[in-house]
């Protein structure tokens, strides 16, 4: 690991002020420390933001939930308001990582989690456009069983690994970002970027900016929501495919729906196609299957990951059934 200097910030202002050349904020550290050990991340300075008072979960007057960026995954998963009003989020969090890691990982950090692509994580591979822009992509022709079938480009097919973010996409979450130019809010769907020709740019967060909050609006669909994660073993593993769904039902009629996929796409993937296929129709296994087909219509398999298309459909149909509880 490269040497680095380290400072601790007690406030957001201090955190911003302590930034230097090639700095990173460090919160839970579960991604950053991991990648620093691999020499994938090589910051010269770390600003520790664990002491920031962004560690509260509050229900605001309009019924929305405001989650501080420093709220740990375990606290968020076990929060009574989350369990009651946003069950998909609790389920997604508890499906991720392990109890220890959830005690460390933060809400803001999880949004910035980086891909598990083998080739990204191993600097011995020269070709990784995410790590070294313009160097190529070793995964395209490599062992790509865990890679994306949705949202990839010829420059990058790495999946986004978060479970939490997938659930937040299904909940229309809004990310609050503070930077030198002030504060701004970004819809979570727009927060993560497709790789396109610039896979090194993963989110809209600019250098010097700090995630402060995530808000979950009160909605008619958030309580009837579910998360399903499929993987090789029963726990403590990233998704091969996962699905977060939220339904607003009137009897069996679907008034509105939110569907998001994890493990199969280059970003937490919202499927408007599948939502449209469901909206206004009757909740049924048949309708759910049609929605799943719609969700995966644009999927493009690589050599080793074609099975993910079917697996993602299975996850979606199961999640829809669980949410609808027909």
């Amino acid at each position: 690991m490269q040497p680095f200097s380290f400072t601790q910030a007690r406030s957001e202002d201090e955190a911003m002020a302590q930034l230097r050349q090639n700095s990173r904020f460090i919160a839970g550290g579960t991604t950053l420390v991991d990648l620093m050990k691999l020499d994938v991340e090589t910051p010269a300075h770390l600003v520790d933001i664990n002491a920031l008072s962004l560690n509260k979960i509050e229900t605001l007057a309009d019924g929305s939930l405001r989650i501080g960026a420093m709220v740990r995954n375990s606290d968020l998963a076990h929060d009574a308001a989350v369990i009651k009003n946003f069950p998909v989020l609790s389920q997604a969090l508890l499906a991720g990582a392990s109890a220890q890691l959830r005690n460390m990982a933060t809400t803001g950090g999880n949004l910035l989690q980086r891909t598990r692509c083998y080739y990204f994580r191993d600097p011995a591979y020269a070709a990784c456009n995410k790590r070294r822009p313009g160097s190529g992509c070793a995964a395209l022709e490599g062992f790509n069983r865990i890679h994306a079938v949705l949202g990839g480009s010829e420059h990058c097919v790495a999946t986004h690994p978060s479970d939490m973010a997938v659930a937040m996409v299904a909940l229309d979450a809004v990310v609050h970002i503070r930077g030198p130019k002030g504060e701004r809010q970004v819809k979570i769907e727009d927060f993560h970027k497709l790789p396109g020709t610039t896979p090194q740019i993963e989110t809209v967060v600019e250098p010097g900016e700090l995630i402060t909050y995530v808000t979950l609006p009160k909605s008619a669909f958030s309580t009837r929501s579910a998360y399903v994660k499929l993987r090789d073993r029963a726990s403590y593993e990233f998704a091969l495919a996962s699905a977060a769904v939220a339904l607003d039902l009137n009897g069996k009629t679907i008034r509105s729906a939110r569907l998001a996929l994890g493990g199969v796409a280059t970003k937490p993937w919202r499927s408007h196609e599948a939502e449209q296929a469901l909206t206004g129709g009757q909740a049924s296994d048949q309708a759910f299957r049609a929605a799943a087909e719609a969700a995966m219509k644009s999927a493009r398999p690589l050599r080793y990951n074609g099975f993910k298309i079917e697996l993602a459909k299975m996850a979606l149909v199961r999640a829809l059934n669980e949410a609808a509880q027909l």
Binding site: E141, R145, R233, A234, Y236, E237, F238
Partner: peptide, 24 residues
């Protein structure tokens, strides 16, 4: 898993080489 192109091991860690956990 080995990458045929260069002989490196792509899953040489305990996240990508899955062994049973308690829940299995």
């Amino acid at each position: 898993i080995y990458d045929d192109r260069d002989g490196s091991i792509v899953n040489s860690n305990l996240a990508d080489y899955a062994v049973p956990v308690n829940a299995d």
